[in-house]
Write a protein that binds this DNA or RNA. Sequence first.
DNA 1: CCAAAAGTGTTGAAACTACACCCATGG
DNA 2: CCATGGGTGTAGTTTCAACACTTTTGG
Lengths: 226, 226
Amino acid sequence: MSANKKLPPLSPAQLTADVVIFTVDDGELKALLINRKEPPFSGELALPGGFIWKDETSSQAALRILKSKTNVDNVFFEQLFTFDAPDRDPRGHIITVAYFALVPSDILRSAALKENTTLLSVKNISKLAFDHKEILIYAIKRLRSKLAYSNIAYSLLPRLFTLTQLQDIYEVILGHTIDKRNFRKKIASLDIIEATNQKQTGGRHRPALLYKFKKRGFTELEEPVF
Amino acid sequence: MSANKKLPPLSPAQLTADVVIFTVDDGELKALLINRKEPPFSGELALPGGFIWKDETSSQAALRILKSKTNVDNVFFEQLFTFDAPDRDPRGHIITVAYFALVPSDILRSAALKENTTLLSVKNISKLAFDHKEILIYAIKRLRSKLAYSNIAYSLLPRLFTLTQLQDIYEVILGHTIDKRNFRKKIASLDIIEATNQKQTGGRHRPALLYKFKKRGFTELEEPVF
DNA sequence: CCAAAAGTGTTGAAACTACACCCATGG
DNA sequence: CCATGGGTGTAGTTTCAACACTTTTGG
């Protein structure tokens, strides 16, 4: 912010917001993608995103985009990184503030029923429009470290859930299996969830106790969960 | 990036880059600040920063600013966060991509001799121009977690240093003392530094062995250093 | 010889890892 | 009664935290 006597030409960049919307579904980490109908990159897959409007912050724009795709806005959501490589958009100097959000799979599955929208396992995403693959890789990395050091799993599960469902979230995102007894001991010691008196119904096996998060909102942890 | 049939008005934001330049000096964490000579916030302290020029990325702008203040550019440096609250700059909608850098204290001390430039302990920074206090607080938080999980201390020390100097870095930034023997055991187990055959001279006490980082470049660690 | 910082090991506590069997339900 | 996933404890190992004295130099 220092003053310049003779001002050099300033960057006329336009601003967009892109949102990586994750869920864990069917044992896989998936992201919501849009099948682009217009150039550039027509016919390719891209992250949901759009231009930031006047009198709107990037965070408001990202939330608007999230809500337009999923109808939810009370989920975990944070700014990731700003991408501004000069050649990232063929239309010119367009920079993007990337965000990521975590949404329970039942909500995202119905969202993906909309036209042009798909829910894809990150393992099967080979190429995306713009630099969106790079954004996605960055988002996965951030997701892993946030999951290990916070309670954000609350944002991937329904209000009531079983310990096995919770463990699946951790195993899928961290990418390795975890011993069931050790996982339960660790989660109990973190004091972030509590048992309810309800049980899961419908399985042909012993019904699981249902748990809930003590706080459905971001809480940082002192020690990692595996 | 979805196409809009009727485009709403887009944000005409201008872009700046601000850089939090840290050092550890005299047992304190300090940041390089500029005494502003022109409005807005004339006479107040601010982070070094400036408008992003045409055909320049935010990272290039931040490095340009860093180099103009310190004459170094081979130090640890990364993007922090993008701040775009609509009222953050009284001149209008100006958003900033914030970066942070770590510079050895001898270099920053001479840099701070320039006019309008000062090196201030973060404990003594009460108020800054714009939202720069918020940016500084965010940077300190990021610095703490990066320090604990990487080798970035290399960027705060000369090429050769003593174990006590290294320990001081950790104690000052993490904000608590560390047992000397435990610190040395932990650092040794991380395998990121190695002893040289040189010794520190000049103290009226037993000379300390000088060490160097095996790699002077960012390396992520698996386990935290305290 | 004195002051000052460098350097070095051990022990008890806590946390982590690996591991196997019984339980409750639906079909 | 069988298949399926739910639920639970212990022992060995590793890591962590606390703690005090000897060494080397300069003045």
